[in-house]
Nucleic acid binder design. Sequence first.
DNA 1: AATTATTTTTAGGTTAGTCTAAATTTAGTT
DNA 2: AACTAAATTTAGACTAACCTAAAAATAATT
Lengths: 217, 217
Amino acid sequence: MQSATEENYLKVIHHFSSGTNTRVLTNQLAEYFNSTPSSVTDMLARLSGKKLVNYKKYYGVSLSEKGKKLAVDIIRRHRLWEVFLAKKLGFAWDEVHPIAEEMEHVSSNALIERLDKFLDYPKIDPHGDPIPDKNGNYKPVVLQPLSELKEGDKAIISKVIASDATLLSYLKEHLLIPGSEIKLLALYSFDGSVDLMINNKKKIHISKDVAQKIVVK
Amino acid sequence: MQSATEENYLKVIHHFSSGTNTRVLTNQLAEYFNSTPSSVTDMLARLSGKKLVNYKKYYGVSLSEKGKKLAVDIIRRHRLWEVFLAKKLGFAWDEVHPIAEEMEHVSSNALIERLDKFLDYPKIDPHGDPIPDKNGNYKPVVLQPLSELKEGDKAIISKVIASDATLLSYLKEHLLIPGSEIKLLALYSFDGSVDLMINNKKKIHISKDVAQKIVVK
DNA sequence: AATTATTTTTAGGTTAGTCTAAATTTAGTT
DNA sequence: AACTAAATTTAGACTAACCTAAAAATAATT
Ligand SMILES: [Mn+2]
Ligand SMILES: [Mn+2]
Ligand SMILES: [Mn+2]
Ligand SMILES: [Mn+2]
């Protein structure tokens, strides 16, 4: 068995190695966890001992096959709980993450299978991220920033890259949230700002800066 | 904040002191947790330091007001999750406990309030135990063993005192489970055994021994 | 290539939660 | 009251998960 801390590490290593570059660095993890490089070294040695990661001193880590399986399963659990929180309990999409961060560590497999069924086998979570099935399979959704759309294009917002609270509440107020349908009415070449139609109901003008932080599919 | 271990202690101390006698003994807790008396002493000192229990060396512990509040809240969380697992996910009443034992430690209060609403404010859990409301109020259900009913009495099974797996599956097979309605058809004075009608559908004969383990209300 | 800066590991220490074995206190019994 | 038995605490040790400070390895610059 693995602890909640170990599960969190696996999930984050998976996240950081999910792009092109495969190895994950000690300082990267330390910064992410608001921890110290020495604590990370400690944990990487532990995970290596459990054959969950491939770890070379001074070089970096990657997930082993065993570790990758586990990481994907934890991501599955996390995202299913997020769907439950949003769809069944009525939490907003930006409230579910910290709660799911705890729920994902409840260990029962039967629980997750039944939850999956109860939710009618959802494919994406409230942030637009794909949910792996029980075999760990999922297809990464093709995403692009809103700023790359052309005039007339329609898309669904699937994610918002923002941690700033004032920006988040601004986006929320104007329904620039995951799930909303948008149409690009006009693109102003002089500053990259755009006019949008949101859910066929409301027009809005946003800067290029903000448009780059709204990810659509 | 308190750890999951501390929460488990508070809950169990509440359980053991819930009867007439108020003080809970070290060995009692050690046995319950399959732990050692010295580990318990250690934890009691910790809980005492947090003002969650009143603890006198060599004498025993009881919950402080603060500790009692917390204990009741953990019981609330536990039983609400049990209802969720049974009613929404379709788990059997005898499968929900170990899962709820983990879920009860998820810390969000908003989560529990929304869960309560989602479940339509249930008053009892799948074992027939009462669920405290958000202020910690609940009325202990008046319970008696089936063996104390008189001929002609009707009752609802609210709990089964059994850990033996063969007995549990026997009871399950014959629908002698929480929620079932039973009527006492005959009481045999020579050995205390009884004839029952279960859910107005099936007759069964059970020994006094088993009748004493079926709690009804 | 030598020096400097950055990254990472090692060394040593802390807290929560556990254990075994020994000492102590309380309870029970001649 | 003295002795024995049971319950409980203390002492000392261990692991997981953290930390700070120092040492070592790697990367970047002169
Ligand atoms: Mn987590
Ligand atoms: Mn998500
Ligand atoms: Mn628990
Ligand atoms: Mn219960």
